Computed example of a mutant assay.
Amino acid sequence: MTANERRAPWRAPDELDAGRRALYDAIVGGDRGRDAAFALTDAEGRLEGPFDAMLLAPESGAAVQELGAALRYRTSLSGREREIAILAVAHAHRSDFEVWAHERVARRSGLSEAELADLRVGRAAGTFGAEEAQVHAVVASLVATRDLDDATFRAGEAALGTARLAELVTLVGYYEMLALSLRVWRVPLPETPDV
């Protein structure tokens, strides 16, 4: 995809109205900006990835941004568990931006190249711990069937507990929403993806 295929305006910070600028500042000045494994903006300050699409409707975009920040920085899922889940969703939906971004985050969270290769083909790595393998099993079921059968639900709840399972289900829904937004608005990979 090229930049001119975008369906939404790609605005520099000085082109944003007050509501969009407040959302922009929350994204780049929040946890994501402090912990970025990849650049959130291009050289002109324009937001990359799903963050740019959030500016289209700033009130709902602010809620989406806050949910994403909560799921990334304030859940009881470990960094590895979270990235296993995100990448499983991203690969299932062929969400190039999320794969690109979260492979970078996953490496920082300790996932190996071999583990990333297994995730690319939809497989849980043999090196995953028991809870990590259960995270992958739950996500695989959710993206394939849109549900958890009784056995998968019980195994997920036993391994993760109710709260972590609830966080995981919410995380899957959130990243599926981002995959849809990225696809609909034709958001490309960054022009200089090696950050």
Rank of each mutant, 00 (worst) to 15 (best):
R80F: 07
V121C: 12
R74K: 09
R94S: 15
E131Q: 13
E81V: 05
A125S: 11
A85C: 04
H91V: 13
R74H: 14
R94L: 12
A114I: 04
R107V: 14
G79M: 01
A106W: 00
T75L: 01
E132S: 02
S76R: 15
S76W: 13
L116I: 07
R94Y: 12
A117L: 11
A117K: 10
A130R: 14
L111G: 04
V99P: 04
A106Y: 02
H102R: 04
R74W: 06
A101L: 08
V121Y: 13
H93R: 15
A133Q: 14
E132Y: 00
L87A: 01
A133Y: 09
L119G: 02
R94I: 11
L87N: 05
A125Q: 04
V121I: 14
R82T: 05
L77N: 03
A117W: 05
E98N: 11
A85R: 00
G79S: 03
L116W: 04
R123F: 09
L119C: 07
A133T: 12
V99I: 15
I84Y: 01
H93E: 13
W100H: 11
R107L: 12
R74F: 03
A125F: 02
F128A: 07
V105W: 03
E131A: 13
A125C: 02
E113D: 14
A125T: 06
H93F: 13
Y73F: 15
L87M: 08
A101E: 09
E98P: 07
A69S: 13
G68E: 10
A117T: 12
L77R: 04
R72L: 13
G68R: 12
A88M: 12
E115W: 00
T127N: 07
A90I: 03
E103I: 08
A130S: 15
S95H: 06
A125D: 05
A101S: 14
